[in-house]
Design a protein around this nucleic acid. Structure first.
Length: 270
DNA sequence: TTCCAGGCGTATC
DNA sequence: GATACGCATGGA
């Protein structure tokens, strides 16, 4: 990774990044494609327009301090994904999955936003999840805090059209706003303890908890198992995951999930 | 029309 | 502890 300041922009050189693969793979729900190789979105209410391909990217209207304090972390630029992918070469399926999406990275998202987003994800599809979250952000003009959401009711959240999930998000907001659950404390807990803590929230089971731990708290050993990953495990890993992914199961999951989903989509198209 | 979507709570055994 | 079943909403 290298970068340079150019006028009001940051130019980023990173060979292990493709915007579509990283921002539009179902790990984050607030990025929109606004042009060829161009996405707009935000993190912690800090907006960004990023464009680029072939290892060269422009972060528009971004200062050097913003880049270093926010986007460097968000895009996990301190991690060497070339080395990681090379280590996954021990397994033929994983190797193929990495070759299929060589520009995918695990984003370091906000824990509260990930919690809300993945509660909305349960028994839902990605376009609808994005719709619900975009209505939420549009309504508040920012991603609402736990305190703001704790003041709502199932009825007042009706505009989200989130169905049975509204009551779960309210329970999460109440538990976080009251201090009963502290996400920043969870981040410092051992993985099993943090998972158990999150599962105290209604609507948060093993899968949603693992998504929050992986995408919102960077527990790379968290391994969310949904219908797709269950299929992957049964088909390719009936005896468990290969040893080379120990400690980064969640990142391996990202490549595998994307691989299997798109393969089946491609098959459906003929 | 029917089926399904990055699951989970509840009832029942 | 395992196994069914319902769940709001909307797209295919």
């Amino acid at each position: 990774m290298k970068y340079e300041v150019k006028s009001k922009d940051i130019i980023l050189y990173e060979s292990d990044l493709r915007l579509g693969q990283t921002l539009d793979c179902g790990q984050a729900f607030r990025w929109n494609k606004i042009g060829e190789n161009t996405y707009s979105g935000s993190y912690l209410d800090c907006p960004l327009e990023i464009s680029g391909s072939d290892g060269v990217f422009t972060l528009k209207n971004t200062t050097e301090s913003e880049f270093l304090s926010i986007w460097y972390d968000y895009f996990d630029l301190g991690t060497d994904y070339s080395a990681l992918k090379k280590s996954y070469g021990c397994d033929p399926v994983l190797k193929a999955a990495c070759q299929y999406s060589p520009g995918m990275r695990l984003l370091r998202q906000d824990s509260w936003e990930a919690l809300v987003s993945y509660i909305f994800s349960q028994h839902n599809n990605i376009p609808r999840i994005k719709g619900i979250i975009s209505r939420l952000v549009e309504h508040y003009r920012h991603f609402p805090t736990p305190y703001e959401l704790a003041d709502e009711t199932v009825e007042s959240l009706g505009f989200l059209r989130s169905g049975f999930r509204a009551k779960y998000v309210l329970d999460a907001a109440e538990k976080v706003a009251s201090g009963l659950i502290s996400l920043s404390v969870c981040k410092r807990m051992p993985y099993p303890d943090a998972k158990a803590e999150l599962m105290k929230i209604k609507g948060v089971g093993p899968k949603v908890a693992d998504c929050v731990l992986l995408y919102g708290m960077h527990f790379t050993e968290a391994f969310p198992i949904d219908v797709w990953m269950r299929r992957v495990m049964q088909t390719y890993y009936p005896d468990g995951l290969p040893e080379c992914v120990t400690g980064t199961e969640g990142i391996a999951q990202l490549y595998l999930f994307n691989y299997i989903r798109n393969l089946e989509k491609d098959d459906a198209k003929g």
